[in-house]
Design a protein around this nucleic acid. Sequence first.
RNA 1: UGCCCGAUGGUGUAAUGGUAGCACAAACGACUCUGACUCGUUUUGUCUAGGUUCGAGUCCUAGUCGGGCAGCCA
Length: 598
Amino acid sequence: MSAESPASGAPAAPTDFIRDLVAADVAAGRHARIITRFPPEPNGYLHIGHAKSICLNFGIAREHGGVCHLRFDDTNPAKEDIEYVESISRDVQWLIAGWADHCLGLKPRGATPAATPGSATPDFHLAAAGAGEREAFFASDYFEALHAYAVELIRRGKAYVCDLTPEETDAYRGAPDQPGRDSPYRDRTVAENLDLFARMRAGEFPNGARSLRARIDMASPNVWLRDPLLYRIRHTAHHHAGNRWCIYPLYDFAHCLSDYIEGITHSICTLEFEVHRPLYDWILQSLDLSRTLPHQYEFAKLNISYLVFSKRRLLQLVENNLVAGWDDPRMPTLSGARRRGIPAAAIRRLASLVGVTKYDSLTDIALFEHAIREELNPLALRRLAVLRPLKIVLTNLAPGEEIPCLATNNPQDPEPTTRPLALTRELFIEAEDFAEVPPPKFFRLKPGGEVRLKYACIISCQQVVKDAAGQVTELHCTADLTTRSGQPDADRKVKGTLHWVSATRGVPAKVQLYDRLFAVPEPAASDDFRVHVNPRSLETVTAVVEPALASAQPGDCFQFERLGYFVPDARDSAPGRPVFNRTISLKDAWTAKGPARA
RNA sequence: UGCCCGAUGGUGUAAUGGUAGCACAAACGACUCUGACUCGUUUUGUCUAGGUUCGAGUCCUAGUCGGGCAGCCA
């Protein structure tokens, strides 16, 4: 077991009930190699909830030297699209990069498994690494094999073709508290079933006219055992399989067998599939398969306060233009998080922090925000930027005079580097860092008061200049240059230190201030979650930033001192003209308390 | 009112019959050229009732509360 070293700053390898079960299987020597899978349906974008599953499945694989297959569970062509195949592949690789890339199970492009049920050899051989171009697994690549398994089930008298309409099928199924009734087609002969199933495949019947059903027990207290459908007729082309098929397997039939075909040892899914587990086992056991059967385990999916995760709601946000798309930095999608500047490692850290249980919980978004800051703090280069500028004139400096200063790039570095900065007569500070009538314990600038300009010197506020409307337009201050670093009074203490940017050397930059998408802790709990979208979830300002920021590139990561973490937007930035996204603000013990909250 | 699953501080989790611990959050304090970081201190918990046991958060029974399941979705 390769535990992550706590000394490296990464969280220790987590433990949970599923990992315990896997460890027990390994200890008992039940598997030569651990193979898990992450099986998204390509009908939407991946979100932080999926990330929990990805981290679990890839995490288990990497802890045991195993592999985790990326498999598209694409058995419903009507809802799926290649766009999602691509975005999902991209997002998975981003999330596991530098952590579990070596565990990502892919197959040679175009490869399909042998379609010989009952064969003693594995249905799907993983080609040796490096053998040409590779791609994810697709359930649709197994359609031929799956069909053969269905035929085998019919031969064994365990499946039959049913002519009931969808409505009739519903009625015959009964209710949870009352048993269903047998379909009148339940006792067709094997020969008749084989013939009908062949004709279903041949396209002789319209959509919904017939279906293939498992023959189990219409009186079972578990409704999923009441002769569940295995195949339905859909005259629809498939995004991956093309137009070879007009019958498509349903999830319950395809999933367990896909797991078997790939040699999955632990099939881990969310709680809503718990009642499907007996069916998962029934199908595999009914086929007398030669290899070790996979087993399904369930865990509770992730919920985070102030967010929504359901595909339906995410789609509504996009379609109603409440956000600017799937990758809007406010979206809880992986592509949104990436654009927002949230490191993949922060999401992995969150997954480790929340653990894995069967309890339907609601995680405080503060835990996620904590994980993001933990990840960013040691990495982000410190920079000075003023979001809402208030002009300061240092009256004892001459126009054009420049006082050189040295700024630390990252104090978290064991050996921090520095960059030069120039203090000039005119500069900007944050408007909220000045108060004409300061509240109690206001450590910032006030009339007659003193503050330190970070990396520069202490200034003192001499005069407040206002316009005709009484608005403060600028402050006249004097700089005490003896308090600069290296000067005699460098250690003189003042209560407040402010960030600042030279008015003559600073450059304007668009900054997008993102905040929580929703204003209430449980938006999904109300009738219309859309009314709870936080009106201040995005505020765009023209900031003035220090010169070094003008050359910022997407992929860079900054902390604007005293403000928060920011990244150049990968989409909106132009060369030399970066647009910054606020990933997250710094933790703030001052405004959080309320006195200065607008 | 059928079946399945769950319940430990405000939140998320650990304790695998033997001292209820950790993280986040909150509060206070120290430090500070970031009201950040870091460090210290503190507050708050085993759903209820029975039972088994020398001993129960853990095992059993019943109840309460919460979640899931009746798509030709996954």
